[in-house]
Design a protein around this nucleic acid. Structure first.
Lengths: 155, 155
DNA sequence: TTTCGTGCAAACCATTTGCAGCAGC
DNA sequence: GCTGCTGCAAATGGTTTGCACGAAA
């Protein structure tokens, strides 16, 4: 059900090669982990590192960070910032365009699709003569739970 | 042309008092600085601190951070995260709803109004039963300048 | 007077970087 | 073999916090 593409044909690897980057075991594993995530699921550097350690390989946190940065700069990953102190990343390829609602109470995030927002981003970018890389719509608010239990937040 | 409201009547001060916070000289100055910013202009903690020092008072960076956090939590400031490693803040009051385009090349930000996006945020939030605090639409891309001069970014 | 707010410096935490050794090509 | 990649540990940079003092109410 889950056929893993040959190293030679994977478009992600091709993107790396094309720009003169090497295919290392670490990078393969990291890409593999991202591919295994459910669509719309994003990982922080720490989370990625934890998953790397689970697999037994000893990939350092530094490499995780370096790879996330590299893949983002190549446009293979989408960098998400939910204003909670660290970034999250998700595969850009074949992900349906989606946006996020973030609960500032419990940091839960919800994804929702909205192709209209995609278009809007492109259109507005064009209006200002920008080359649009990514349009991110974030709705910050309180989820149903946190909305109710508000009182418990002493601070 | 620029009449500064009396301490007693300022709605910002009232918001503080109402929740049991004290009006200190530091907070007054900080609010004053934000009021003096052009609409749509945002400040980082460091920038705010620099402006505080310019005024001669010796407000510490720690207080700047504490105050920014407090004012944001009270909903008086809008917290903006442009994924450049530090946050920016702007007065929420009387600011026309606006969104941002960020150049990932030179970090320039451009504001644009779009009431449609405001509505969209509210509507989508409502769909998920969220209490919407702020909807932020960010378009990351390359500005006309950086689009052209791309080659100069060796790394 | 009581309690909150502040300055200072140390602590934190996410992320980056210098360096020497190892691996891709 | 050359050069880029990695692990390690130290450095960085933004932000937070403990503490004792000073100031708002």
């Amino acid at each position: 059900m889950e056929d893993i593409p040959e190293t030679g044909t994977d478009p992600l690897f091709d993107s790396l090669r094309k720009r003169g980057h090497r295919i290392t075991a670490q990078r393969e594993t990291i890409l593999q982990i991202f591919k295994e995530q459910e669509s719309g699921h994003h990982l922080s550097a720490e989370e990625l590192h934890a998953k790397l350690l689970e697999r037994g390989g000893n990939v350092s946190l530094a490499t995780a960070y370096r790879t996330l940065k590299l893949l983002s700069s190549l446009g293979l990953l989408r960098e998400l910032d939910f204003a909670e102190g660290h970034k999250h990343y998700e595969l850009k390829q074949d992900t349906l365009p989606h946006q996020h609602i973030i609960c500032t109470g419990c940091n839960t995030t919800l994804e929702f699709e909205d192709h209209f927002l995609e278009e809007a981003g492109q259109k507005i970018g064009a209006r200002y003569n920008f080359e649009v890389i990514d349009a991110q719509f974030k709705i910050f608010g309180l989820c149903p739970n946190c909305k109710t239990g508000k009182s418990s937040k002493g601070r």
